[in-house]
């Protein structure tokens, strides 16, 4: 029973990482319709950024790594949008192939730069250890990831709901032509949306250095699950993404506990497929009068 309870922080932190990744995808996939397979490599870029910073500035650079990784991954995303993706809007399958290619190139680039074997970034001292909460051991590093995800979700929610830039972003997503007729520079908004979504992937990458090694394949490990979260939650829906991330993260870690990693993955897929049979549109759907 105690071992089972100890799966709780693991499941929650996996859920938090999935949520951070899926947050970025709700922007680029859920709202803009771009299936960005290179999103996983932005996670990797964030993780390597944390690793490199640590090499230069020691383990106290960890907190600094969060904004820096956001900027690095965000700029990579912006570059990808500007150079390639903006020519492929409205063609989701083409963006899939295109960004998959970019993903392979970025992975190879990481192998050339950092070598094929995994590297390890050590967590800062103040994140080692943990506390006991009602008999469950909660490690600090996993609690930190959880807190980070909560901060990011609240930040993104506030940004979308309250800020002028967020309002503009929602306008462009809902009706691109009307946004242009309203005087909005839609191309600039697209680039910024990509910067934001990709930057969040970078932050997720930094979080991942707390719980595992950093390698060129880091992103591919999470990207499919993150897409599942976005689809199951309902495209472009923040609260759907939150609930789906927690559900999938917990399910995954408990199934892993009872079976093994690959069987757990299969079972999670089965659950998601069954769920989508019942609700193909995901948990939450946008509703409006006479509008599809």
């Amino acid at each position: 029973m105690e071992a089972l309870a100890n799966q709780l922080p693991i499941g929650l932190s996996i859920a938090a990482v999935l949520l951070l990744i899926a947050l970025g995808l709700t922007f680029t996939f859920g709202q803009m319709g771009v299936i960005n397979m290179a999103h996983g490599e932005f996670i990797m870029a964030g993780a390597y950024t944390a690793y490199l910073l640590q090499g230069w500035a020691g383990e106290q650079s960890f907190l600094l790594a969060l904004p820096v990784a956001f900027a690095v991954a965000g700029l990579l995303g912006l570059l990808l949008e500007w150079a390639l993706i903006r020519r492929f809007y409205g063609r989701p399958l083409d963006t899939l192939l295109l960004t998959w290619g970019v993903s392979l190139i970025l992975q190879q680039l990481a192998r050339d730069l950092f070598g094929a074997p995994n590297v390890q970034a050590t967590a800062p001292g103040w994140l080692t250890g943990g506390i006991d909460l009602m008999g469950v051991r909660m490690p600090y590093n996993r609690l930190f990831i959880l807190g980070l995800a909560v901060v990011c979700v609240v930040g993104v929610w506030w940004y979308l709901a309250k800020s002028p830039q967020g309002r503009r972003m929602r306008a462009v997503v809902q009706d691109r032509e009307l946004a242009a007729y309203s005087g909005i520079a839609t191309g600039r908004v697209d680039r910024f949306t990509f910067l934001l979504g990709s930057g969040l992937a970078g932050v997720a990458g930094v979080a991942l250095t707390l719980v595992g090694p950093v390698g060129p394949g880091l992103g591919t490990f999470y990207i499919v699950d993150a897409f599942l979260v976005v689809v199951a939650g309902g495209l472009g829906q923040l609260r759907g993404a939150v609930i789906a991330a927690v559900a999938l993260g917990m399910l995954n870690s408990f199934l892993e506990f009872w079976s093994d990693a690959s069987l757990a993955k299969v079972l999670v897929f089965v659950v998601v497929i069954a769920f989508l049979q019942v609700r193909p549109q995901g948990m939450f759907v946008l509703r409006g009068r006479s509008l599809v």
């Binding site: 002028p164 309002r167 503009r168 929602r170 306008a171 809902q174 009706d175 032509e177 009307l178 946004a179 007729y181 309203s182 005087g183 909005i184 520079a185 946008l286 409006g288 509008l291």
Partner: peptide, 27 residues
Amino acid sequence: MAYVPQGHAAFPQLTVWENLQVALEAT
């Protein structure tokens, strides 16, 4: 120039106030 396209075009999930606000912020 300002354009009112065919078909009662508005941003469906923005409130009426937000619809106006987003246009104001773009001016």
